[in-house]
C-alpha cells in the first residue's frame, strides 16, 4: 500500500512560494488596495482559526493518520467553556484551560480507539465526530450563547499603527495566538524528540515500533495535541464572532484538511512541514482577498480553491513520476 501511495509524495515548499509570489505580483498590479497593511492584517486575522486547526491536522497527517473530528471537538469545548463562563462565572484562564484540556482529552479518546481497535483513524474519527457533535446538539438543543463575558469578546489589540492612507492596522489576539501555535508546532515537529518520532512513525510505522518508539504514547500526544488546538481554535473563533453557535464550525473538516494538504502534508504520513502549511493558508488567503478586490463574485471563490487543489496535486504527481523515472534510469547507468 505504501508503495502504491508513493505518488502522493511531497512537493517542495519552494514551488508553493513561487506560486504565491506570482499571485501577489498579479494582484498588486491589478489592485492598489492589495497588500496594504490594514488589508493584510485583516486577512491574517480572518484565517487565524483555520491556521490553528491546520497546524493540528498537519501533526496528525505527519503521523500517518487523518482526523476529521476536530470541528466537533472545537464546537463541544467552545460550548462547555462558554457555559462555564456564562453560567458559573469561570474566569478567563481557567475557562480557556478547560476548553483546551477537554479538547486534548477528546483527542486522546481518538488515539485510544485508533490504537486498540486497530482501525484507520479516519474511520474512528468519523464515528467519534458523529458522537461528539450529535451529543452536543442533543444536550444544547442547538441553542446559541450570545452573552459571552467581556473578557472573551473584547478585542485585544497588542499593537496598532496608522498607515499612510489613514487606515489602522492592528495586531490582535487571534493573530498572536496563531503565530504562537505556528511557532510551537514548528519547534515541536522539527526540534524535539517527540516531533522526530512522529515523522518516523509516519514514515515507517513497523520500523518505528522496531526501534523502540512507544506508539501509543506518541499517538496520544498527536491526537491530544490536535484536540488541544481545537479547543484553542474554538475559543478564538468565539472571540472573533462574539457568540457561540454549535453549528458554526460544522462542515469545515474537509476545507482544513485541504489546506494542510495544499501546504504539502501527505496522506501517507511522514512528510510536510509547518512552513508549508502556512504557505498553503497564505495562498488561499491571498487568492480570496485578491479576487475580492478585483470584484470577482465571492461565490466564485470555492471554484478557485477547488482548481488550486486539483492543479497542485496533479502537478505534484506528474513531477514526482518524472523524477522517479529519471532516478530509475540513472540507477541503471551506474551499474
Amino acid at each position: 500500500m505504501r508503495k502504491l501511495l508513493a505518488p502522493v509524495f511531497n512537493r517542495s515548499e519552494s514551488s508553493l512560494a513561487v506560486v504565491i509570489i506570482v499571485v501577489v505580483l498579479i494582484f498588486s498590479v491589478s489592485s492598489p488596495y492589495f497588500l496594504t497593511l490594514s488589508n493584510t492584517a485583516d486577512l491574517i486575522e480572518s484565517y487565524s482559526v483555520t491556521t490553528i486547526l491546520a497546524a493540528g491536522v498537519f501533526v496528525v497527517l505527519v503521523s500517518g493518520g487523518i482526523d476529521i473530528s476536530f470541528a466537533a471537538v472545537a464546537s463541544v469545548t467552545q460550548f462547555i467553556a462558554a457555559m462555564a463562563a456564562t453560567k458559573y462565572g469561570v474566569p478567563a484562564f481557567p475557562a480557556i484551560a478547560l476548553a483546551c484540556a477537554l479538547g486534548a482529552l477528546m483527542g486522546c479518546v481518538n488515539a485510544l480507539l485508533t490504537y486498540y481497535l486497530n482501525v484507520v483513524s479516519i474511520i474512528v474519527t468519523i464515528a467519534t465526530s458523529s458522537i461528539f457533535y450529535a451529543l452536543l446538539i442533543y444536550f444544547t438543543g442547538g441553542s446559541e450563547i450570545y452573552n459571552l463575558p467581556d473578557w472573551w469578546t473584547d478585542r485585544v489589540v497588542f499593537l496598532r499603527f496608522e498607515t499612510a492612507s489613514g487606515d489602522f492596522a492592528r495586531i490582535t489576539l487571534p493573530m498572536v495566538i496563531m503565530v504562537l501555535v505556528v511557532v510551537v508546532t514548528h519547534l515541536l515537529m522539527s526540534r524535539t524528540h517527540a516531533g522526530r518520532q512522529i515523522y518516523a512513525l509516519g514514515g515507517n510505522p513497523e520500523a518505528a515500533s522496531r526501534v523502540g518508539i512507544r506508539i501509543l504514547r506518541l499517538q496520544l500526544l498527536v491526537y491530544g495535541y490536535l484536540g488541544f488546538l481545537a479547543g484553542l481554535a474554538g475559543f478564538v473563533q468565539a472571540h472573533r464572532v462574539h457568540q457561540v453557535v454549535p453549528t458554526a464550525m460544522f462542515g469545515t473538516e474537509l476545507s482544513v484538511l485541504a489546506v494542510a494538504i495544499l501546504g504539502g502534508a501527505s496522506l501517507v504520513g511522514g512528510l510536510g512541514s509547518m512552513g508549508g502549511v502556512v504557505l498553503g493558508v497564505l495562498l488561499l488567503a491571498i487568492l480570496q482577498n485578491g479576487l475580492n478586490l478585483l470584484g470577482v463574485s465571492p461565490y466564485f471563490f470555492d471554484v478557485v480553491i477547488g482548481l488550486a487543489i486539483l492543479i497542485s496535486i496533479s502537478v505534484t504527481a506528474v513531477t514526482q513520476r518524472r523524477l522517479r523515472a529519471k532516478r530509475g534510469n540513472s540507477e541503471l547507468r551506474h551499474e
Binding site: 466564485f300 470555492d302 480553491i305 487543489i309 486539483l310 496535486i313 506528474v318
Partner: peptide, 25 residues
C-alpha cells in the same frame, strides 16, 4: 495522472460545490 483518490475527490468536491454555489448564488 495517478493522484490518490482522497486528494482528487477533496479537490473535485470543493470545485463542484463551488460551481454549484457560484451558478445558483
Amino acid at each position: 495522472i495517478g493522484v490518490h483518490p482522497i486528494l482528487v475527490t477533496l479537490g473535485t468536491q470543493t470545485l463542484i460545490t463551488g460551481i454549484s454555489i457560484w451558478l445558483t448564488r
